[in-house]
Design a protein around this nucleic acid. Structure first.
Lengths: 102, 102
DNA sequence: GGGATGCATCAGTCATGACTTATAATAAGC
DNA sequence: GCTTATTATAAGTCATGACTGATGCATCCC
């Protein structure tokens, strides 16, 4: 029902959102991600851990470094959750229209 | 670009999400919302303020009470933001497929 | 008008989490 | 093998924000 909660709380943080947006452009290592930000490397690793546990990104070891990429299925639950309210809104609107009938 | 940030941080909180979900079913007063939860009335008012400032709900005074309802346009930016990554993912996939060609 | 109800704001408490530096662990290159 | 590079974890600090009770302010009803 609300497995979107993980995605929501993960993406609520601005820094974590920037990490996610960075990976949306192309896969990158932790060092590469860190270069684009103003926080330390451990901070980036911690953010990546949260994003990983939320199913939003995946990390695959590549030699000494680890390449992170977006998990395509990660945003699914959030999208679904959002659509529920979209539908609910349409229902509510239909209800109001219905009440206007004699 | 990321006006979705307000919506994200607003919906990241579980209690606030429950308030939002409650209003998705039907408009309600603050007292009615509070009845469905386990937090105090001031807490609900504070959550409603955040949701209001995020453009997710609207409150209209009705006599002594205030009726809150979902703002249909509120989730728009968040949906749009989400779709950006959906598209980016498709692009990335197309790029990979392209690279496989001789 | 006076009491009651419904909501918002104030002030204060407390937990969570975002960040830091330091350090451990693993892999690559000389 | 030893140094260097890359990442993950540990420990600690600090700010933010979610909650509470108390209070102010309207509005309705008698």
């Amino acid at each position: 029902m609300t497995d979107a909660s993980h995605a929501l709380s993960a993406l609520a943080d601005p820094t974590r959102r920037r990490v996610f947006e960075r990976l949306a452009e192309s896969p990158a290592s932790v060092a590469e991600i860190t270069r684009g930000l103003t926080v330390s490397q451990p901070a980036v690793s911690q953010h990546l851990k949260v994003l990983r546990e939320a199913g939003l990104v995946t990390g695959t070891p590549k030699g000494a470094s680890t390449v992170y990429r977006i998990d395509p299925a990660g945003l699914g639950p959030l999208r679904q959750w959002l659509d529920r309210f979209w539908d609910a809104q349409l229902e509510a609107f239909a209800r109001v229209v219905d009440e206007d009938k004699p």
